[in-house]
Structures are given as structure tokens and as C-alpha cells.
């Protein structure tokens, strides 16, 4: 197992090591709490790889994935994670739900609560929506992405990938490049990686850079070639096609010219790790030869995603399951 970046000075055990009911964001987590989740995830990485004897510790628990915004990859990842742990997984898609009939989010939350879900996984297009639901339900809530706000499990899986590949997060120079303004992945990653003492740079055209981003303890760049200097990790963000029709960026080819991770750019940092939360716009923010190259950790990120989500669901349901020291 990898050594954690942060450790509390005294040993904390049981529920005290992660005293949160929900995982609505990285905001509010202490560095050692983040490390604890990563340590827990390491265990599941090995278990998943070796096809170890099934561990159905969530057997009999109901996990509801309530996705108010379309998703394929994250939903699948949470579903697999729940099933590996033996939970009964139910998916609720907004397209099929009464949300379209005007039901408010609170009513939906109370409905899900009344059905006695044991863990809720929620994605919503509005920032803060997941916290709103978490305040209203009795079971643990996991944020699978809310608006532009947070996507904590993505940040955890990225941190885990970096820690496994580079040995540590602390001191790593991580460049996050792309649509930072509209990206919950960027926000959660900034919070998690800076908490673990990485040197985080963000890079975007000024039209896609959030104001006062340096107050989150990152260094902003508008020139990708400068930003990438000395990088240990290059994390590319997906740029939505609708942002590249002249609204924020003149065109996708101009975006590729200034911010695309091409083989030529990557050649300047031959030891850097290449990451992307997916789905990728190949040939726009990242070239295929880079995405599929030896420096890429993109498929590993997907693998870490399942492990991290297993860890989060296990940890958050320990109290309900009466695990010793957690109840």
C-alpha cells in the first residue's frame, strides 16, 4: 500500500477518522480524511484486480442512483461499485422521473427517503442541489456531480491515480487545462490536490477562467505552453462543443491550437502523466496519440473510479451497518 500524504499526529480510529454523514464535496474534508478514503480505495483496487472472493458487505442495502442529468460513465461506475459490494442498485433517470412533471427537488428527495434508501447517489445540473437533498434525507448522500460546483469522487479517483503512479500527491506539479469556469471536476480537483499539498496550476482562456481562482491556492495561466513547464501531471478537461461555437472560444480548431494536448506539446514533458476525466473530444483538447500513449493514465482513472466509489459507499454506510467503532 502507498504511504499517505497526510496523517493526523495521533492515531484516529473508527468513525472518528471520517466523521461525515455525506460526501457532498471535497470542501470541508481534512487532508487526512481524503487520505483515509484513498487508503480504503487501495484495498478495492487490489480486490477488483485479483477477482478475490466476493465481499458483499452491503448486501441487503438499497442504493439509489438518482441522476437528474444524463451520464453514462459515472452512473455505470457507481452501479458496478454498488453491485460489487452486494447492494441492491436502482437507477432513477430524470428523463423518466416526475421531475419533468414539475415535482420539486425536495419532494423527490422526500420520496426517495420514504422508500428507505440506504445510500443515495445524486447528480444534478444545479450547483448546491445535492447538499439540498442531503439536508432532507436520513441516509448517506454521495455527490456524483452538481452543476459547476463539485464532483468529489472524480477528484478522489484522480488523486488516487496520481498517488499510485507518482508515489505521492504532495509536491507534484499538476496542470489542469480546459473549461475551468464550468467544471465541477476542476473545482473538486483543486480542493483535493491543494489539500494534499500538490502544486496546482490551472490553464484556460480568460473567457473560461473563473474570477478569483487564485484564491483557491492555484496559479492561473492562459498560455498552455507556459503552464505545462515542469509538469508532473497534465489533466485535460472536456470542453463542451457548445462552448466552441464562438460563445467562449472561436472554434474547436483554434482551441486545439492553443490548448490541445498534442504530441509536440507533450514531448516537452516526457515524464508527465496524462489524465482526462472523459468523455474525450479526441483531436480537440487531446490528440489520440496522446490519449492512447504510454504516458496516459486515462483508463486507469476509470479503474480507480470503481475502487474509490466502493470505498466511499463502504465508509458512508458503516454507521448504518453497525461496523464496530462506527456505530
Amino acid at each position: 500500500m502507498q504511504r499517505s500524504d497526510h496523517r493526523p499526529s495521533t492515531l484516529i480510529e473508527g468513525g472518528a477518522v471520517f466523521p461525515h454523514r455525506h460526501l457532498t464535496g471535497i470542501e470541508g474534508l481534512q487532508p487526512h480524511e481524503i487520505s483515509f478514503l484513498l487508503d480504503e480505495a487501495e484495498h478495492w483496487v487490489e480486490a477488483n484486480r485479483t477477482h478475490a472472493a466476493p465481499d458483499k458487505r452491503m448486501a441487503g442495502l438499497t442504493q439509489i442512483n438518482a441522476f437528474f442529468e444524463n451520464s453514462t460513465r459515472t452512473l455505470l461506475s457507481f452501479e458496478i461499485a454498488g453491485k460489487r459490494l452486494g447492494a441492491d442498485v436502482v437507477n432513477m433517470h430524470a428523463a423518466q422521473s416526475s421531475v419533468k412533471k414539475g415535482e420539486t427537488l425536495i419532494d423527490t428527495a422526500q420520496t426517495l427517503n420514504a422508500m428507505r434508501a440506504d445510500v443515495l447517489v445524486i447528480r444534478h445540473m444545479s450547483s448546491g442541489a445535492v447538499q439540498l437533498i442531503a439536508d432532507k434525507v436520513a441516509c448517506p448522500v454521495l455527490n456524483a456531480g452538481d452543476g459547476w460546483h463539485e464532483h468529489p469522487t472524480q477528484a478522489l479517483l484522480d488523486a488516487l491515480t496520481i498517488r499510485r503512479r507518482r508515489g505521492s500527491v504532495a509536491g507534484q506539479r499538476v496542470v489542469i487545462c480546459g473549461d475551468v469556469l464550468h467544471s465541477r471536476v476542476a473545482r473538486s480537483n483543486i480542493l483535493a490536490l491543494t489539500a494534499l499539498a500538490a502544486d496546482v496550476r490551472v490553464c484556460a482562456p480568460s473567457t473560461l477562467m473563473p474570477p478569483a481562482i487564485e484564491r483557491m491556492f492555484v496559479t492561473p495561466f492562459t498560455d498552455f505552453d507556459q503552464a505545462i513547464e515542469g509538469a508532473d501531471v497534465v489533466m485535460m478537461l472536456r470542453v463542451q462543443n457548445e462552448r466552441m461555437d464562438g460563445g467562449y472560444i472561436p472554434s474547436s480548431r483554434e482551441y486545439r491550437m492553443r490548448y490541445g494536448l498534442t504530441a509536440e506539446r507533450l514531448a516537452r514533458v516526457p515524464n508527465a502523466l496524462v489524465m482526462h476525466p472523459g468523455p474525450m473530444n479526441r483531436g480537440v483538447e487531446i490528440d489520440s496519440v496522446v490519449a492512447d500513449g504510454t504516458q496516459s493514465a486515462i483508463t486507469e482513472q476509470v479503474e480507480m473510479g470503481v475502487a474509490v466509489r466502493m470505498a466511499c459507499m463502504d465508509v458512508l454506510t458503516r454507521r448504518a451497518r453497525g461496523v464496530e467503532g462506527w456505530a
Binding site: 450547483s127 478569483a212 484564491r215
Partner: peptide
């Protein structure tokens, strides 16, 4: 500003 950026609003 910082608050809106942190909240993603």
C-alpha cells in the same frame, strides 16, 4: 468573485 467561484454559481 471568490464566493461565486467556489460555489460554482
Amino acid at each position: 468573485g471568490e464566493t461565486a467561484t467556489r460555489l460554482g454559481l
